[in-house]
Design a protein around this nucleic acid. Structure first.
Length: 275
DNA sequence: ATAGATGTTACTGA
DNA sequence: ATCAGTAACATCTA
């Protein structure tokens, strides 16, 4: 499910539903998802209180009494909260039962999601080693730095924005929206962008992800019913999934191509490649 | 009916 | 370094 706005929506839901609860029992039915070792993971979580749920890019950070649980939802990860009984489901892979009898259950059809249990002092190094860029906010996302780094790369701008190093949080839906807003062709080389385009991309990134958060994320393709899946952002998308429909700006048909292995939607009239 | 696609990231080999 | 391809997995669709 998640790009930054969806993960942020889940973060808010988790704080509302499980902050303050104490873990009494842990059951993992798909061990490979725990990258730091499933045995110690289950042991170390017992008795831990959920103090706060934070987010960095698309990563959830669940702050506990003595540890931090880093959870990445990848393509289809979801959290479900159950006040008492947990229904059977073949795609439930992690079960956290609290002392009050309620449960938080992680669901992931494709099993791509990951969990890691770190010490609080190790969090910074974790994101540094993965080269996760600044948060897409005016405060963190520096235009000059963005511009300098783009100038050093020949990568197609879409692929570059997706790699999380320039700015954290864009995924395949929102990146297409950002490129449309900024009127930049997805295959344009990073180092061939005009100063105006760079400024537009910077601004559009902040605005589109902020709008996504305000709308509670998008609910697309996968079903609702899990934490944070009640978003309406899908109603505000202008190009993603709009193949063959009229461009909202010029009425030209939106086309879909493949770029860097990802489906890519854009307006061939508004988003022209040059250079 | 089977190939291809699906909101992601990390690893491999050229 | 950098880049393209691929793997991890399950399901849906054209």
């Amino acid at each position: 499910m998640p790009e930054l706005p969806e993960v942020e929506t889940v973060r808010r839901g988790l704080n509302r539903l499980v902050r303050g609860k104490v873990i009494e029992k842990v059951k993992m039915t798909y061990s490979p998802m725990v990258k730091t070792g499933v045995d110690t993971f289950c042991q170390d979580l017992l008795g831990q209180e959920i103090l706060d749920v934070d987010r960095r890019g698309k990563y959830l950070l669940i702050y506990l009494t003595d540890h931090v649980l880093i959870s990445h939802l990848r393509m289809e990860g979801k959290y479900n909260f159950f006040p008492d009984q947990v229904p059977a489901n073949k795609h439930f892979h992690a079960f956290f039962t609290f002392t009050d009898g309620s449960s938080l259950v992680y669901q992931d059809v494709r099993k791509f999601g990951t969990m890691e249990l770190l010490g609080k002092a190790d969090v910074e190094a974790y994101f540094l080693s993965r080269k996760i860029g600044p948060e897409p906010t005016e405060a963190d996302f520096d235009l000059e730095e963005f511009s300098r780094r783009l100038a050093k790369s020949k990568k197609p701008i879409k692929s570059h924005l997706l790699d999380q190093s320039l700015v954290a949080g864009l995924g395949n839906i929102y990146v297409d929206e950002v490129l449309f807003r900024a009127q930049v062709h997805p295959a344009q080389a990073s180092n061939q962008l005009s100063a105006e385009q760079v400024t537009s991309l910077h601004q559009a990134t902040i605005e589109v992800l902020q709008l996504g958060i305000e709308k509670g994320g998008s609910t697309i393709r996968t079903y609702k019913n899990a934490l944070g899946m009640d978003g309406t952002m899908q109603d505000y998308l202008q190009v993603y999934g709009k193949t063959g429909q009229a461009c909202p700006r010029c009425q030209t048909e939106i086309v879909k191509i493949k770029l860097g292995g990802r489906g890519t939607h854009f307006c061939p009239q508004c988003q022209v490649k040059y250079g």
